[in-house]
């Protein structure tokens, strides 16, 4: 029973992280229906920004965190401006392949600057964030993750539901032509959604870095985990991404714990194929409202 609870807690925490990482991915897909293969690299870049600020520049933790977020935000804008804007209106495969190329470029750059070694952040989290009952033990990192993640989720929920800019972003995702006719700055919306996505990705990268250490191969690998997560949750649902993440996380830890550790990494994809066959738009994806 202890083992079961351990797995449950582990799975929930890992899954929440997956969901958090997937949020940025969903955001880009929602606004511009681009499948971002460079997402893992964006996650990694966030972690390395934080690393650079904390260990090289020796800036206080909180400030570094904010600076790294700002850096990711700017990077997102730059990516959209330089690489994606010229491709508006081109077939999707080009856009998707462009993100593949970007992924290789970013990975090369990170490897060039930092190499493939494992880095760790200095320990800074207060112990009080963790929970240590007899059976359930949650290290402080996960406590922090839960708080940050929930905060971001609520913030983005409010942003998309109530702020004008959030509503403009949703309108572009919904009907680009109509949005254009009302004077919505569609290009600005694209830039903003890339910026926010990079920011969220970077944030999850930092959290992952705190938990597992910073290594470009591990972090960019998370970018591929995102696919089963978002398919499960529906490609266009941010809340669904979190739930999808938790389901995949639980699935992984339980297969790893009870069946075989080697099956752990492939189970999400098997589930993915099954879901695609049975429920093509995911568990929480929008059902198409089709009218003629």
């Amino acid at each position: 029973m202890d083992f079961f609870i351990q797995l449950l807690v582990g799975g929930l925490s890992v899954g929440f992280l997956y969901g958090l990482s997937a949020m940025g991915f969903v955001m880009i897909f929602k606004s511009s229906s681009v499948l971002n293969f460079a997402h893992g690299e964006l996650i990694a870049i966030g972690a390395y920004f934080f690393l650079a600020f904390v260990t090289w520049a020796k800036i206080p933790i909180l400030l570094s965190f904010l600076l790294a977020l700002a850096g990711c935000f700017l990077l997102g804008i730059l990516i959209e401006r330089i690489f994606l804007r010229p491709l508006i209106g081109e077939p999707l495969i080009f856009v998707v392949m462009l993100t593949v190329g970007l992924a290789a470029m970013f990975k090369g750059l990170i490897l060039f600057i930092w190499g493939g070694n494992l880095f760790t952040y200095p320990d800074f989290l207060p112990k009080a964030l963790g929970i240590d009952w007899k059976i359930i033990r949650i290290p402080p990192v996960y406590g922090a993750t839960l708080i940050i993640g929930t905060l971001f989720l609520i913030l983005f929920g409010l942003f998309f539901k109530f702020s004008s800019q959030g509503i403009y972003m949703r309108s572009v995702a919904d009907n680009q032509r109509a949005a254009l006719s009302l004077g919505v700055h569609v290009k600005r919306v694209f830039a903003l959604s890339w910026a926010i996505a990079a920011l969220v990705a970077g944030m999850s990268g930092m959290v992952l870095g705190i938990i597992n250490g910073v290594n470009v191969h591990d972090l960019s690998g998370i970018g591929l985990k995102v696919f089963p997560v978002v398919i499960l949750g529906g490609l266009d649902s941010i809340g669904g991404a979190i739930i999808g993440g938790i389901i995949i996380g639980l699935l992984e830890t339980f297969t790893g714990g009870y069946i075989s550790p080697s099956l752990r990494d492939v189970v999400p994809y098997i589930v993915l194929v099954l879901i695609l066959l049975l429920k093509p738009y995911g568990l929480f994806g929008l059902k198409e409202i089709e009218r003629v």
Partner: peptide, 26 residues
Amino acid sequence: IIQVLEGRQPFKYLTIEENLRVGTAT
């Protein structure tokens, strides 16, 4: 100058009020 497109083109997944709010974009 605002054009109302042929065939109406609402934002289907937004509520009526949110639809109206998109009109404030300018």
